[in-house]
Write a protein that binds this DNA or RNA. Structure first.
Length: 555
RNA sequence: GCCCCCGUAGCUCAGGGGAUAGAGCAACGGUUUCCUAAACCGUGUGUCGGAGGUUCGAAUCCUCUCGGGGGCACCA
């Protein structure tokens, strides 16, 4: 029996009790769902629900009395061994071993689909992340979004939504020109202009472009800057894609800011806002009255000189996403962009949308990096940067992705490069991967003995050991963990769950011998445990896949 | 000045109203004739920054406050 099935049964018991008049409640007071959780303390049964405590007030009865009325009904359920009323009014449910053990069969049968749900079914989600300027290499800050954003996309998909991963290419504006000027200066051996880009990559890029196109060097300055800018842009963009590709983060859409302007998307976006009545002119500029929706000041769309602002691009881009049919538009931004939250939400409202439903701006705190106890500053312009490429190579892709994914993004992350690289054996990713490899090895050994996990010849009631119960309980949590991670946009929950599951497995393994020893004949318990191991391997693999981390068969 | 994030064990951090607040690391000690010891077991630590409030119940929600970090543009 899965926790979901039990929750449904508890809900049915509530309905039944209400219908029978046992709770003094009207049918309308029946909750739409009840929570069934695994108590930390095993003395509190396999599952516990607080539904009686929640209903007590409106029922006007002591919680324990409500609980008793429900307990009577739950005790009759097939698979339920015991129901106790405990503490202030908790219902503690103990399953019989067979009902619990059935889960192993269900998981092995479901295979790669175990953990998926329809929690977010029907939603079309656009998930935008990284969106770095194509003016330099991706750095460690981008790495966090590369890992988290990709995992988030996988998790949301697992919950049944349709997800488009999108990278917005900021290929227009002043920064691009500064980039072009910096390349041109470097190609001539001149010092980097004020506000230009530093760093070795600028010189390397300039040299590569000059070698490929020596004729650029004799162009008039204006044309030359453009030539260098465009060549540098294409090279940088290609490099970013290649680096992300190796990091296993793939985008469905690379959306160019220029293309917004080349099409009539910007004008269409403006039109949409005008129709909604939030656009006005003042001081020769065109403004959007974002203060109508909680922004602390209005924003300029068209500057007095007639140029569109970056915010105008944002507006057009948002409207374009909506036009492409995305109900939920998620922006994963760094903390340095947190000032954008209100204006983006206001923008959605100005476009006539619901900012609580159509747009979600998630702010991720920045990553600090320590090297030798000193903070390494990250800046494309400063030149002293840890690139995504270097980081992934130094730490390994699995360790890099996993480490970046296992923390909530609203907490600042401090990574010591030395810890990531020199002490990799302490990294939780290896703990989880090791559990997978251990089971894979066990399954190989079993196959050598002619034993294969078999869902047809499976005796679930034999899985009655305490550690088997703990393991089954942990396995049953997986679908809810994934669904919650998807709803809250918190993929780190999957990582934390896997660490817990790996530990639970290791403790099971330590006590419960799976394969026959010596000349011992293989019996039903061996088979049952083997299937339990196969189920665990499946969940570990499914979970690691959600994080984009390998599940190795050997370590 | 206004806004956002954080404050939990010696360190790094989990804990989206539930029962006695957890894990890893670090320290000390133990476990292997047989399935991967990258594992497991044991020993100790907490004014959950502080003060109020909400309620059957608060680390969790609300208000205030202290401390740390980040952000404010007709820049991108």
């Amino acid at each position: 029996m899965t926790p979901e099935e039990l929750a449904a049964s508890v809900l049915a018991a509530v309905r039944d009790a209400v219908a029978a008049g046992d709770l003094g409640l009207d049918v309308s007071a029946v909750p739409t769902e009840v929570t069934v959780e695994r108590p930390r303390n095993r003395n509190h049964g396999d599952y516990a629900t607080n539904v009686a405590l929640r209903l007590a007030k409106s029922a006007g009865r002591p919680p324990r009395q409500v609980a008793e009325a429900l307990a009577v009904r739950l005790r009759d359920l097939p698979g339920v061994a015991a129901v106790d009323v405990a503490g202030p009014g908790f219902l503690n449910v103990t399953l019989d071993a067979a009902a619990q053990g059935e889960l192993a069969r269900a998981i092995v049968t479901a295979g790669e689909t175990y953990g998926r749900s329809d929690t977010l079914a029907g939603q079309r989600v656009n998930l935008e992340f990284i969106s770095a300027n194509p003016t330099g290499p991706l750095h460690l800050g981008h790495s966090r979004w590369a890992a988290v954003g990709d995992a988030m996309a996988r998790v949301i998909e697992a919950a049944g939504a349709e997800v488009t991963r999108e990278f917005y290419v900021n290929d227009r504006g002043v920064q691009m020109d500064r980039f072009g000027e910096s390349l041109m200066a470097a190609a001539h051996g001149r010092p980097t202009p004020t506000d230009g880009y530093h760093g070795e990559y600028v010189g390397e890029l300039a040299a590569a472009i000059a070698a490929e196109h020596p004729e650029y060097l004799t162009l008039p300055d204006d044309e030359q800057m453009v030539a260098f800018r465009e060549a540098g842009y294409l090279l940088q963009l290609a490099e970013q894609r290649a680096v992300l590709d190796r990091f296993r983060t793939h985008f469905d859409v690379w959306y160019s800011e220029r293309s917004l302007h080349d099409s009539d998307a910007v004008e269409r976006g403006m039109q949409r806002l005008r129709e909604q009545g939030h656009v006005y002119e003042a001081d020769h500029a065109v403004w959007l009255r974002t203060t109508d929706f909680g922004d602390d000041k209005d924003r300029v769309l068209v500057k007095a000189d007639g140029e569109y602002t970056y915010f105008a691009s944002d507006t057009a881009y948002y409207v374009d996403k909506r036009t492409r049919g995305y109900d939920v538009n998620i922006y994963l931004l760094g903390a340095d962009h947190h000032g954008y939250v209100n204006r983006l939400r206001a923008l959605a409202a100005c476009a006539g949308d619901d900012p609580d439903r159509n747009i979600e701006v998630l702010i991720g705190q920045l990553v600090k990096i320590l090297r030798g106890g000193e903070e390494v500053r990250l800046s494309k312009r400063a030149g002293s940067i840890v690139t995504l490429e270097d980081f992934a190579e130094e730490a390994g892709i699995d360790a890099a992705r996993y480490t970046l994914c296992r923390y909530p993004t609203d907490s600042p992350l401090t990574l010591d490069i030395a810890v990531m690289t020199a002490r990799t054996q302490d990294n939780p990713v290896y703990y989880v991967q090791y559990a997978h490899a251990r089971i894979a090895s066990l399954l190989r050994n079993a196959a050598d003995l002619g034993l294969l996990p078999d869902v047809t010849a499976f005796a679930p009631a034999l899985l009655s050991h305490e550690r088997e119960g703990a393991l089954l309980g942990a396995l049953g949590e997986f679908p809810r963990v994934v669904a919650t991670a998807a709803e809250l946009r918190e993929p780190h929950r999957v990582a934390r769950y896997l660490e817990d599951l790996a530990g639970t497995y290791h403790r099971f393994y330590d006590v419960c011998r799976v394969l026959p020893q010596g000349d011992e004949e293989a019996g039903p318990l061996h088979s049952a445990r083997l299937l339990l191991c196969a189920a665990t391997r499946q969940v570990l693999a499914n979970g690691l896949a959600l994080l984009g981390v390998d599940a190795p068969d050997r370590m």
